[in-house]
Nucleic acid binder design. Structure first.
Length: 806
DNA sequence: TAATTCGCTAGACCGA
DNA sequence: TCGGTCTAGCGAA
């Protein structure tokens, strides 16, 4: 029974070799038996396109006979075909140049440069395979197998999703010196957690009383036991937190050092770590290594969560609202040496890291699976992708389906030129500081996507030959075809329509069901994709970058919001504020109904796809002035709705680079003012906090300021508190790498603020004057000022010694 | 090598 | 020691 036909989920694809020749290794999971297995394809051949300049046949002939030398080996194109494709909007004849090996493609491209322009020569082979076969990862396909070889594979339309056999792990390393060094520092514990099983820790040479610890004879045995565990559990999804950069490479290096056999994969291939931009990426052959760290980072950038720091503990707390066992990193090796309770605590900590990682993986998986199915990237890639990569992947697929040649990535000088020439963005109206009542916030539903669709904003619909008067003309004069819909608006419209359909389906589905969760994840993924289109059009490295498209999108946005503001004023409302796609209107008491009439009149003038919505009514709201001058501050306001729910934007209290003591007080002050309008009470709260700070009773944790250090330390021109604190932390051997977020306290010792900054791990005291004058007072003075409180009065009274009068 | 621009604010730096 | 300018980070949309 060597030949068989089956239905299976496509889990992953990777480029590999088979008997010395290139091949693709797919990981499949049988729908019925739930067995995961590798299968190979060596029939699919790499290729790229060439648009020849000069005589077509002559060029084809030259390429066929071309020989390229690389590392002592000679090769050429295996064949050349004439094909018809679309570039931009033009049908053209192209040469499709096939290669024997994916590695030959870039070499052939170099060698054929003189004959014309190459296309699609920088698409990875695995991606090429997926696109050309119309296969979607995490989806079902029909496979015909001859032993391990794939005879045919076809996608199956089905909403079914694979169930993964999942395991999360985490390691602890003995690091008495500074940074962990695999040449010297042993792995002392490996923990593992999988659904339905009790989590466990593998360790050695020490006595543990906890029954979750499995003791083996040595470090080597521990590493090998871990690999064995992965085989026993037949793990599909191996979860880690930063396993890409730390746990997996460390285990590999350590295994080399101590001659442990380290094969955590499903096949006997080694781990592969490659540098993907700023961070490394590690593949475990035959399993999907799901690193939760980049997933959390992604959620942070799309605004789904906001983390003070990117640690596992912070992610666990912010995303799942749970606390896990903590330990001071500097104490780990001491706990190992000390044994007893300290060692038990370390084991527990190690255990909880795997448990937390597993829970976070499970929580985020449905979204990532949906994004993978939507973008067509493997789950491995998707979970490490940025929004730009997702949009690009999707467009590449749809481009292929339409017979369009995928545009090349821009070369570096072009990227630079684009970056130096940014486009004009949104319109923001300056508010006047003060307290206002009877407010309504209106906003355009999915403004940028709806503009792109409505006006057919697409790089290849720009300046078409077919339209003259009937073309969409942007406020800046760019013309977009009104007859043939472009790739960008088409795919975007599909996304929006799909999201509507999913949302409709959700209404018919019980909220607690699995199906509902899946639908929720799907509409969320679709929303993320839709919202990323505009940024992608203006992204300098994008294959579909178009200055004209991006600037037309924002120009139309400015036009529509300003038009709405004008209409609102004509209708008798006061427009207090507007930003990009929203406007805050003030109405006369009891005239809520007029808002709805106004909204309808605006919508009657809009293109069909665009819509102004009522976001909410707000009985009261506060705007403050800028720190310098009397002008109202943009992007900074607080509103309270009829249910007493407060919406706060831009204030220090939403910023992680402000101390908790200042943020908490600012929130309380805003709440009291919005809910009760009690200025006196607010003033008293401020003074209470100041007194506490001055008395030294404020907990140090409330004084921590978190700031990310976003460049290499050497690259800084200016010494800032965060850079200074990071340096001090690194000197003390704390595990802060480059680009990390540092939590620091301004202490009493030192002259400049940078000198006074100490990492929280090392800080012993705080500088009360700094927290009063540079944190608490700036956070509340502008707010109280907006209510007519004499801010200066509070400041002098507050900072004077004699607070007894209050 | 990995989505955009607009806007606020801090703290350092620098010259008077 | 001041005020202006600049670098840098973070948030709004």
């Amino acid at each position: 029974m060597r030949c068989m036909k089956t239905r299976a989920f496509l889990l992953d694809v990777e480029s590999t070799s088979l008997r010395g020749k290139h091949a693709l290794r797919l990981f499949l999971k049988d729908e019925k038996t739930k067995r995961s297995f590798p299968a190979y394809d060596n029939a699919f051949k790499p290729y790229y396109y060439l648009l020849p300049k000069g005589d077509f046949k002559a060029v084809a002939k030259k390429i066929v006979s071309l020989k390229v030398r690389d590392r002592g080996k000679e090769f050429g194109a295996t064949s050349v075909e004439e094909v018809e494709r679309v570039i931009g909007r033009k049908r053209v004849q192209l040469l499709k140049v096939f290669a024997q090996d994916p590695l030959h493609v870039p070499k052939l491209h170099e060698a054929t440069k003189e004959f014309g322009q190459s296309y699609e020569h920088r698409i990875s082979f695995a991606k090429r395979f997926l696109i050309d076969n119309g296969l979607f990862p995490c989806s079902l396909c029909e496979v015909e197998l001859d032993g391990r070889m794939i005879k045919s594979i076809k996608p199956i339309e089905s909403p079914a999703q694979p169930e993964f056999s999942t395991l999360a792990f985490d390691i602890e390393v003995y690091t008495p010196a500074n940074a962990p060094n695999p040449a010297k520092d042993p792995v002392i514990m490996i923990s593992a957690a999988s659904p339905g099983d009790s989590p466990m820790v593998i360790s050695y040479s020490k006595k543990f009383s906890a029954d979750f610890v499995e003791t083996v004879p040595s470090e080597k045995a521990a590493i090998e036991r871990f690999c064995e565990l992965l085989r026993e559990k037949k793990v599909d999804l191996l979860c880690s937190y930063n396993g890409d950069a730390f746990d997996l490479p460390y285990l590999r290096e350590r295994s080399k050092k101590i001659h442990a056999s380290f094969y955590p994969g499903r096949v006997l291939s080694n781990l592969r770590t490659r540098q993907a931009g700023i961070r490394p990426v590690t593949r475990v052959p035959g399993r999907i290594h799901y690193d939760v760290y980049p997933v959390v980072d992604f959620l942070d950038t799309v605004g789904a969560v906001r983390l003070p720091r990117m640690t596992l503990g912070h992610a666990y707390a912010e995303i799942l609202g749970k606390q896990k066992t903590d330990i001071n990193k500097l104490e780990i090796h001491k706990a190992w040496d000390a044994g007893g309770a300290a060692l038990e605590h370390l084991a527990k900590y190690n255990l909880h890291d795997s448990v937390a990682c597993l829970e976070l993986a499970q929580h985020t998986l449905s979204l990532e699976v949906e994004l993978s199915r939507l973008s067509g990237e493997t789950l491995f890639d998707t979970s490490r992708s940025t929004t730009g990569q997702l949009v690009e992947s999707l467009l590449m697929r749809r481009s292929f389906e339409r017979g369009e040649v995928i545009p090349n990535k821009p070369k570096e000088p072009e990227v630079q030129a684009r970056q130096q020439n940014p486009i004009e963005g949104a319109y923001v109206k300056t508010p006047e500081a003060g307290v206002y009542e009877n407010l309504a916030m209106l906003d355009f539903k999915s403004m940028y996507p709806s503009i792109i669709i409505s006006h057919n904003i697409d790089p290849f619909a720009l300046n078409c030959d077919c339209c003259s008067k009937e073309a969409h003309v942007s406020p800046q004069g760019h013309k977009f075809c009104s007859k043939i819909k472009g790739l960008v608006p088409t795919t975007l419209e599909e996304i929006i329509d799909a999201r509507r359909a999913v949302q409709a389906q959700m209404k018919k589905t019980p909220k607690e069901s699995n199906e509902y969760k899946q639908l929720y994840a799907r509409q969320w993924g679709l929303k993320i994709l839709a919202n990323s289109y505009y940024g992608f059009l203006g992204y300098a490295r994008a294959r579909w970058y178009s200055r004209e498209c991006a600037e037309s999108t924002t120009a139309w946005a400015r036009h529509y919001i300003k038009q709405a503001i004008e209409q609102a004023e004509k209708a008798g409302f006061k427009v207090l504020y507007a930003d990009t796609d929203s406007a805050l209107l003030q109405f006369k008491p009891g005239e809520e109904k007029k808002i709805e009439e106004f909204r309808k009149s605006v919508n009657s003038l809009l293109p069909e796809r665009m819509e102004l919505e009522l976001e909410d009514f707000y009985p009261r709201g506060i705007f403050v002035s800028k720190k310098q001058g009397d002008a109202g501050a943009k992007k900074k306001y607080a509103l309270i709705n009829r249910d007493g729910k407060i919406k706060i934007r831009g204030f220090e209290l939403v910023r992680r680079d402000w101390s908790r003591v200042a943020r908490r007080l600012q929130r309380s002050v805003l709440e009291v003012l919005l809910k009760e309008g009690d200025v006196k009470k607010a003033k008293e709260m401020v003074l209470k906090v100041i007194v506490e700070l001055k008395s030294g009773k404020t907990p140090l944790e409330d004084c921590v300021i978190y700031t990310q250090v976003r460049k290499k330390i050497k690259a800084y021109e200016i010494m800032s508190p965060e850079v200074s604190a990071l340096q001090k932390a690194q000197e003390a051997g704390l595990p802060y790498g480059e680009y990390s977020t540092i939590g620091y306290v301004i202490t009493r010792s030192g002259k400049s603020i940078s000198e006074k900054a100490q990492p929280i791990e090392l800080a012993k005291d705080y500088d009360a004057d700094y927290y009063v004058n540079n944190q608490v007072l700036p956070a509340v003075l502008k707010i109280l000022g907006a209510l007519g409180v004499d801010a200066e009065d509070l400041k002098t009274k507050g900072t004077q010694k004699g607070l007894g009068d209050w």
